[in-house]
Design a protein around this nucleic acid. Structure first.
Lengths: 122, 122
DNA sequence: CCTTATTGTATCATTTTAGATACTACGTAT
DNA sequence: ATACGTAGTATCTAAAATGATACAATAAGG
């Protein structure tokens, strides 16, 4: 979301600076049970553009939440997975997810096909 | 953050639509142990403008996370407090807060005076 | 030589979010 | 009469986030 500052009055603000925005939490969530390649993530993150995905992944890497493994082959192969710090965040995301699932069900909001990781398509 | 849609693929996205953005979570956090008036909130939310605070509070109210109580006196007196749905979110915010506190301490980020609610000033 | 597959970059436009500033209403105290 | 305090609105501007589109690199397969 924003650049990370040297000091914070409220730690929630720091959390938002690290994983706020439209995509970061969803990316981490998709990585929660394993590794994924760029293309695979793009498919899972319905509608994200290449530029955004690259950008978000770089920022998450920079913050130390994910790792990026490049295999020197062609065509390119790059794997993304949670780093230590990223893994530690999963319980919080899970709590958030449960809250909003409950919220949705009592507000007539529909959960369409949910975040199934590693869906096999076609 | 954004308008709430009728359906979501990932519930984290819903959470972000409800409490994303720069201020919403912090407002809820400040309300976690009780009531606060408009002016009081403005003081606690270092640097928020009146317009933003009003706007964020209205959106939180609309989403059913807080309640707004107007006393018909002059000068005006309005109290804000967590509603049921807002209270249910606190554990998730707490998890997030703990994560980022830990993150901060291992990344040389400083927590300056933290989110003390209801500070008595002067 | 041309196409395909994968992971990108670069440039520009649009949308969303946030901020600055000025103004309103009204009872009470001075 | 005037200023004060609280909780706002209204208007305009600036900054940040997101999106669309086109292009690059390179080995393998035909």
């Amino acid at each position: 979301m924003g650049l990370i500052k040297p000091s914070y009055v409220c730690m929630l603000t720091l959390a938002m600076d690290i994983v706020g925005g439209k995509w970061k939490m969803v990316i981490l969530w998709q990585l929660r049970n394993g590794v994924a390649r760029f293309r695979e993530l793009k498919r899972l993150l319905n509608g994200i553009t290449q530029k955004m995905l690259t950008q978000q992944l770089r920022e998450l890497e920079e913050a130390g939440l994910i790792t990026r493994t490049v295999y020197p082959v062609v065509p390119p192969k790059v794997e993304y997975r949670l780093a230590e710090e990223g893994t530690k965040l999963i319980p919080a995301l899970d709590a958030l997810c449960q809250w909003s699932t409950n919220y949705a069900s009592s507000h007539g909001i529909v959960e369409s096909s949910c975040c199934a990781t590693h869906m096999v398509e076609k």
